[in-house]
């Protein structure tokens, strides 16, 4: 289990002021769950993910993965970035197998595993292509395969589909659910789309900015329903979906609305 306890992060802004990017966030990510962090831009989602990935130390609080404190990046936490970070000089298969190469896995085996993973994300015929020959959605799929290659305990995804068009994005969401259903990986997923959060999450945590805070938890089951029935339309048109959508929508907008009204009073 991944546990985040009272995690706070303070940055220093360029003018020397202190930015309170994350305020006492606590979170559990259990086996076989997809926890989605949802919030407007600047509310500390990436900060939280970077801390879990080990790219960023916490100012206060703790993060543990299966009881071990998280201090630095490691192959037990696979990361998929919004901007693709594939190596332009390596073929798709070599990119997927990069983590295996770091782990000292021999070339033959690396190739087999890479092909297997490319099959999982539907890119089996692109093993020998180069990243610049692929579309944005395909590159993100390679990124997912690469993060899965080292068999991490958890997959961390920072708005991975944020730069994709909505049609590709829908395909990618379904692909991610398939990967999740087949591998049983736990996933921490960041988005600013309420619909994406509801569709993908087994848990949705809503964050609000200044200071970045988790303001609500929702347990959701649309993703399990989709994995079983594979009927997107039934889910999107379900009344529970619309209700939750509205509830979260008002939550996401509330802190800003309050801030605005306060400012108006001051004026």
């Amino acid at each position: 289990m991944l546990q985040v306890r009272n995690a706070s992060v303070f940055f220093s802004a360029r003018d020397g002021r202190v930015v309170h990017a994350l305020d006492r966030a606590s979170l559990d990510i259990d086996a076989n769950s997809i926890v989605v962090a949802l919030g407007a831009s600047g509310c500390g989602k990436s900060t939280l993910l970077n801390a879990i990935a080990g790219f960023l130390p916490l100012s206060e609080g703790s993060i543990t993965l299966d009881g071990q404190p998280v201090a630095s990046p490691g192959a037990d936490r696979g990361v998929v970035f919004q901007k693709d970070t594939l190596l332009p000089w390596s073929s798709v298969a070599d990119n997927v197998a990069l983590g295996l190469r770091f782990a000292g896995v021999p070339g033959r085996e690396r190739r087999e595993r890479a092909e297997e993973l490319l099959g999982l994300v539907g890119l089996e015929s692109f093993a020998d292509a180069f990243p610049h020959e692929l579309s944005g959605g395909m590159r993100q799929r390679v990124g997912i395969a690469r993060a899965l290659a080292t068999d991490p305990k958890i997959l961390l995804m920072d708005e991975p589909f944020g730069a994709l068009d909505s049609l590709t994005r829908e395909q990618m969401q379904e692909l991610l659910i398939d990967v999740w259903a087949r591998t049983g990986k736990r996933i921490f997923f960041i988005t600013h789309s309420i619909e994406e959060a509801l569709f993908l999450g087994t848990t949705v945590v809503v964050m609000s900015p200044r200071p970045g805070r988790i303001v609500a938890h929702f347990d959701v089951d649309f993703v399990r329903r989709f994995a079983a029935e594979r009927d997107v339309r039934a889910i999107l048109s379900a009344p529970e979906f619309a209700d939750l959508y509205d509830e979260i929508r008002s939550l996401v907008h509330r802190p800003q609305a309050e801030a605005e009204s306060r400012r108006m009073v001051l004026q």
């Binding site: 080990g54 970035f81 983590g99 770091f102 080292t150």
Partner: peptide
């Protein structure tokens, strides 16, 4: 991001230098 990606794939210092 490229460095972070490699580190989270388990790259050691020398591997990071050599491959990234």
């Amino acid at each position: 991001e490229r460095v972070n990606a490699a580190l989270s794939l388990g790259a050691g210092r020398w591997q990071l230098f050599r491959t990234i």
